[in-house]
Design a protein around this nucleic acid. Structure first.
Lengths: 200, 200, 200, 200
DNA sequence: TATGAATGAGATTTCATTCAT
DNA sequence: AATGAATGAAATCTCATTCAT
């Protein structure tokens, strides 16, 4: 990579990281472009060389951060429970993500209920997601290795992710209707039910 | 109600209705207080006599509009299928809401994934919701009349509402991962599973 | 006039005067809205309550300032030569205007060659020009009192004003092709020719 | 001319042509250097190797485009009426220019009232105008061939050009005080008067 | 010569909120 | 209670110009 190219990469990353810090710290509405560039140490015009506006950088961050949550959970699964069943593995991942979000409420607030962007929402995939750092791929691998087979696995995953993202948000942020640790058993039951329905 | 009182009520309603029209038409961020008061035909200062700020009126609208969706669905149920089982009734309500949102994507966009505010989110209930126009009450009535009994009915409803709101949003708005009519059977299955898990 | 109304008038005038000072001092392009409001002592938003943008206030100023040049010249004529012939009066006015512009090159530069806006250009007459402070009216009065009668007096005035404005500009600003005092006799001759052509 | 030299000429011309297209299409203020270089297919920095700034290229264009109008009119005269009188020839040129500008209002708008730059305004003549492609030269030739002789021919031309440029602009652009075909007879009369005054 | 990424001052504009009437 | 002129901080975004490559 040429010096110019690597410099551009650095600027892009710096803006993304800074924006993320500020979004989680102060919220989207209260974070200004001025805040971002000032903290990132680049000129204001530079921001507009890389991103269309505040919502563009927000969308790119939601995609990459939610994606990262899945990747991290999967990597932890490989390390901790490399040989467990599909269902156990899936629940491990869900729980890992819920725990991460409980630990990091600012991130949860930023992602709101858009956890699913990390897996679906092809719209924003002009962000060059590295091929093998893609949760969809890992999910397929898990399915392949599973003894139990499932029909419509994509919709199955979609239902689980939307449920966990949405219910997890309300529970973690507002303890409404109960806190997350009380909710977990119910979520596990529902996921079990979904898997059973889809198992062939 | 005195004439002054009813006049105030009129202004309040006019502001709410106008704000809703603009929010669904142009989106929250692009709607300004000026837009609202101009279209409502009141002075700018008047807005602040009734609402704290734009987010205050937005929250009140989300609560009332999402609540209305449930009420409407319930009333339709009473009319169309007054004697059906609890599970059939619940699915009737879910489908009615999904159909309403499919018909009215601007409303869906406004509610985003906050459908659950119509049932939960006591936070914003300073809006005096008329006692018996409350879905929670209707839900309890349905449970009472049901032959099958369920444990933790509040959490059961919570799970269903979050799932339907969240998955419905993605499906109706982006047909991702499939359109809403294709998704419905899966949702029905999951709801069936949830009810079974909770049935005593 | 209510206190509010007179306050509005004051603001409007203050902005116009300040803008004119800055336009003639620094030029249009180098004058910013910030400059204007700061010097006028009003808030930035206030500017936009009165004018659409910088070009709006510029146009209103060209209209009023060029108009004023004619009015001043006419008033001077009434004072100095109340009983002269139409042609002498017209030349007195032309010379008075040329002298004013020679004295005030900043004004000339601002008006560029748009001197005629003071008489024509109905487009900008939403600026409520006071009825009897209108050069067109004075011109008609002069025509009425004249022994010689002219056909198409409007076009006659138009030709004279465009010629004087345009040639005067080049001559006063650049002494190209000669300075204004050398040009005057030629202009006088041309005007004489125009009047003769139009005299009935 | 070396290859390097001709390459430079090409870039220079490309920038000029592109700038002219954009100036007439979008106006001076709304055309940016970025617009110009992008459409011309050169890098931003390159612009500054050829021109000082936007106003530099604008001035060079006004000079060359207004000059071209005169040249074209003169060439047409040679072709159509090679043996007419001086006065007829001059009017032919004036009418040809007015017709060209009526056909091409974007050009008129760009030249504004600076038509005279094509003849006067030595200021910008670092643009190497080819010696014999200069209207001043042609004008002198016409004078020499004329039976009637005129005093101060430079000022005579100046007065005519300023009048035609200024009055023509208002008439063609705004039909104020009348449209250009109605104005022509009056202009012809005034020019006739000017020539008579200057004839020896 | 030519490039185009980076700059950053500053231009324009918006809009929630206040407060005198 | 109602008004709406005024505010002014702050938001977004532009764009001429530079300079390292």
């Amino acid at each position: 990579m040429s010096k110019v190219q690597s410099n551009k990469q650095k600027k892009n990353d710096s803006l993304l990281n800074t924006a993320f810090d500020l979004f989680t710290e102060k919220g989207l509405n209260k974070t200004t472009i001025s805040d971002i560039v000032e903290k990132a140490g680049v000129a204001k015009g530079t921001f507009y060389l890389y991103f269309k506006d505040k919502y563009d950088i927000r969308n790119k961050l939601i995609s990459s951060k939610s994606s990262q949550l899945f990747i991290d959970a999967y990597n932890s699964l490989l390390e901790q429970k490399p040989n467990c069943s599909f269902e156990d593995g899936l629940w491990y991942i869900v729980e890992h993500i819920l725990d991460s979000l409980t630990e990091n409420k600012a991130l949860l607030s930023f992602l709101h209920k858009d956890l699913s962007w990390g897996v679906f929402k092809k719209a924003f995939e002009d962000t060059p997601v590295v091929e093998d750092e893609n949760f969809a791929t890992f999910y397929l691998k898990m399915l392949n290795q599973s003894d139990v087979k499932y029909r419509d696995p994509e919709i199955m995953l979609f239902l689980i992710v939307e449920l966990v993202g949405s219910a997890g948000y309300s529970s973690i942020m507002f303890s409404d209707p109960c806190n997350i640790s009380d909710l977990k058993p119910y979520l596990k039951d529902v996921i079990h039910g979904i898997l059973q329905t889809h198992s062939v």
